[in-house]
Design a protein around this nucleic acid. Sequence first.
DNA 1: TTGAAAGCGCTAACAT
DNA 2: ATGTTAGCGCTTTCAA
Lengths: 343, 343
Amino acid sequence: MAGVTIKDVAAAAGVGVATVSRVLSGTGSVSATTRERVQAAAATLGYRPSALGRSLKTQRTGGIGLIVPDAADPFCADFIAGVLETARAENCHVLLDAAGEDPALEAEIVDRFAQQRVDGIIAMPVHGDADTWAGLARLGVSVVFAGRVPSGVTGVPAVLADEAEGVRTAVDYLTGLGHRRIAHLDGDATLGGARERRAAFRATLEEHGIVPDEGLLVRARGSADAAYASAAGLFQSRPDLTAIVAGGHRLGEAAILAARELNLRIPADVSIIVVDDVPWAELCDPPLTVVARPARAMGERACELVLRAPARRAGRPVVLPTELMVRASCGPVTPSARPGRSR
Amino acid sequence: MAGVTIKDVAAAAGVGVATVSRVLSGTGSVSATTRERVQAAAATLGYRPSALGRSLKTQRTGGIGLIVPDAADPFCADFIAGVLETARAENCHVLLDAAGEDPALEAEIVDRFAQQRVDGIIAMPVHGDADTWAGLARLGVSVVFAGRVPSGVTGVPAVLADEAEGVRTAVDYLTGLGHRRIAHLDGDATLGGARERRAAFRATLEEHGIVPDEGLLVRARGSADAAYASAAGLFQSRPDLTAIVAGGHRLGEAAILAARELNLRIPADVSIIVVDDVPWAELCDPPLTVVARPARAMGERACELVLRAPARRAGRPVVLPTELMVRASCGPVTPSARPGRSR
DNA sequence: TTGAAAGCGCTAACAT
DNA sequence: ATGTTAGCGCTTTCAA
């Protein structure tokens, strides 16, 4: 039957419960002989200490709550893997849930985690409502944001990819190849990520003496359909563009599919670079040049941070470098390859 | 400050703790007026009932433990998403961990979950050691296997993809295209999956009057390098093969990469079909024909099962259908396209 | 309808 | 070195 408790072990070993507790937690001092007797008793009974009892007493669960938009997304999945690895090393367990892009659901999940008395929460947040996040710190759960930071919230530690630097590198690379009419396709997010990428895109263009062309800066909604529509619309309305920087793999895919549909050759007719590495970039044809965000490392760092968070108050975000992975989806601009080229 | 307890709420509302408990859990009867007072008090204090206290008392945590080989793997990631969705709907939380292919780690994770007193465990198991799984049922945690079943273990409910049927469909499709020398590249797993695929492959070949050629049946180790080596070796040693069925996306990728490296055109020189849908199958060039396993649905079913498991004893596994997604990586066999063709 | 009180399994003082 | 005991926050009889 189930339910072997510390009492049973104590009885079986002929000692008090405190002694059992001492042996199993390695705390205090116990004679070698009793230690062995206790361990033997525990083993034969198949005793598994209840984390419930312990946590109730110690006020620490060793649990960390992880909230992502979508566990099936490759970036999130890598991030999760990073968190898991570090958590395991630190003897913590991870509660996972996905909030989509729904602030209400996010708040609900946070609440559930709070009731589970997790020691900390790592979130790729949807929403900047102070109500959702502010209470937590006060409740003793440390929070760490990852990947993006909601605009309204301050004082929460964060782990970010250096999106700006990534976009800068991408644009530098493209201008180096002779491109001047470069489009930027990104999310409409009021969240971190997209906003910073857009800003960096503009700034870098200007550094190269190119004045940003508003018609080439498009923001797409989240759905796959919307992404495709935006990409296709961009290609059709602006046949003069020679390169495109897509923020996130969804939009990258959309761009590739739309280009293919419109019979634009990559990179002969249009160069494509995606901010977000994906496992299949290599298998794509042509292999995709990307700006990789260090998803896994971000997960590891976030987990470290959340476990040490009580120690470090807010501070500036940890920013991890991105990496330009040059493959074959970008090429030099070719003067007249593409039909319908006007301006 | 942290730590608002039921006592605080009771005091603030001027009632006993039992009443607060009744109000918040909706159990028993309370007058409308006291109910409101309690709710008001709880709200102003920002009370979050401790799941610890409750679980300790009720002996149910509402937690379900999920063990996958790798959270970053697309199949696992989809599966996880399915579990999360159902769990949320059932008011459960999910503890996630990844065991790689390491039986010892798997056992350790199971143990940790047991200490957390999860109500059930869903596992894509590595290992059939009775010790790891048998004790759990006795301990009151229901176990459900997903995707594969270790050979040594019986009496555990499972959710599987109909791998056999999937392979059968794939082979039917290829023979229909005129292929006779079809290779099968799969894992060396002693676990479910691979074994069944191999058996189905053989059987289907025979149904078509083709005697299985052992040289075309290769089992690869898990690592990406090993996969690539196996694929390349296969292409080089057997230039007469015209089609290949790969089990799992890792081996599918390896096959594609190897084919590309050896300048084999897909599908002109070799047709490729992968058992395992991947998000990028569409983006591959040519778009990949696959046998999709319903990862997400499997996660949903597994979660339902684990929550109702006490009710259903063992029984036969739930087998979900696979789906052949015809895209463009398979073509009719072309008599003389490939150099080095001998027999 | 409501309150008092007994635990759930554990740890940590405090005694011995 | 070891045992006794008082809770941790909650649910649930049992009385009132």
